[in-house]
Write a protein that binds this DNA or RNA. Structure first.
Length: 325
DNA sequence: AAGGATATCAACCGCATGGTC
DNA sequence: GGACCATGCGGTTGATATCCT
């Protein structure tokens, strides 16, 4: 703020403050902000707001630009790979949303934060365990994340072009190489962070995910009849999952009579799934989960954001049984 | 169809940090 | 060195949409 501004009377200042708009942005405001930034660049947000004639705080303008108007902001549903990345990075960095967002090109910290709060924390609540508890983290690591990998792999196998897979050049079929989270990247990110002797989430170094870099092509999940309509109505992101699709969306994968045989990811041998001692312990309230089972399972194909379904209940209970917990 | 419950996400708030004068 | 300011970050809120009964 300039000297002149600093010396203004408090009466005038409060008048200005009263004049400031809040709440949702209008199209006109968006247009004004976009135009101004196109001509003058971003930064100096307070003066920008004033010079552009926007009755908004600099903070508000910055937030609007960064989270919504910026041309490279990627809107729409979080892809499977992004989900995986978020889970992984959050397990590593915690609520460092901006840091996590840096690894998800086009995604904003706000979006990731919202995703975490609405999709992930909700299920911690349903499991009656703290989102930061070991039980919940283990459930993520040893159940959801491997299954996400599996589903990404399945999707890639059905959609990745041989060229993309073979070249591994990281170019995106969507035309934006830096907006693609490759599973290859994910592997590099993670290949040293899981306990080797448990075998869990430790993926083989090559061919683990079917292709060296199938992620170079946007991975398109294989939509099921249940979610395909939503997918079709989604925006242009080929790799996106349904707005209602989430970490458990892949439960639509056909199962046989033994759910456990359907869900072991590559590089994730069945025997290795024996949870480390105390992992799936009494901290998970399965009785309560069963009571919620209607909610957890009646969604059917539209598993939306349910992280666990009846097969998972079965799976987890098997783990408890196998470990005599 | 209506009303309540729940989910989602844009936007705001307060605080911390770093730069400049 | 301290005051002030801009920016960035994480937490929270509130409006709206969607789902459920």
């Amino acid at each position: 703020m300039d000297v002149k501004g600093r010396n203004r009377s408090s009466a005038i200042q409060s008048e200005d403050e009263m004049d400031l708009r809040r709440g949702p942005w209008t199209d006109d405001e968006d247009f004004t902000l976009i135009n101004y930034i196109a001509n003058h660049g971003e930064g100096r947000w307070n003066s920008l707001a004033r010079c552009a004639g926007l009755k908004r705080t600099g903070k508000s303008c910055r937030l609007r630009w960064l989270n919504y108007l910026r041309p490279d902001v990627r809107r729409g549903n979080i892809t499977l790979e992004e989900q995986l990345m978020i889970l992984e990075l959050h397990s590593r960095w915690g609520n460092r949303w901006s840091k996590i967002a840096q690894n998800l090109p086009g995604r904003t910290d706000n979006e990731i934060k919202n995703y975490w709060r609405t999709r992930v924390q909700k299920h911690a609540k349903q499991l009656k365990c703290d989102v930061n508890s070991k039980q919940f983290k283990d459930t993520m690591r040893y159940l959801w994340m491997p299954r996400l990998v599996e589903r990404i792999q399945a999707a890639a196998g059905s959609t990745a072009t041989p060229t993309a897979a073979a070249t591994g050049n990281g170019t995106s079929s969507a035309g934006s190489s830096n907006s693609t989270i490759t599973t290859n990247n994910y592997y590099h990110l993670n290949n040293n962070n899981l306990d080797a002797h448990t075998g869990q989430m430790v993926l083989p170094p090559s061919g683990v995910l079917g292709h060296r870099d199938f992620g170079g092509a946007q991975v398109t999940p294989s939509y099921t009849p249940e979610n395909s309509s939503t997918a079709a109505s989604s925006d242009s992101y080929g790799a996106q999952i349904s707005p209602l699709s989430d970490l458990t969306d892949y439960y639509n994968i056909p199962v046989n009579n033994n759910p456990s045989q359907d869900y072991y990811p590559v590089g994730y041998p069945e025997q290795s799934l024996t949870s480390p001692p105390g992992y799936f312990n009494n901290g998970l309230d399965f009785q309560a989960m069963e009571q919620n089972n209607n909610q957890w399972t009646l969604d059917g194909g539209d598993t939306s954001d349910n992280l666990l379904n009846v097969e998972d209940m079965w799976f987890l209970q098997q783990q408890l049984h196998n470990n005599n917990i």
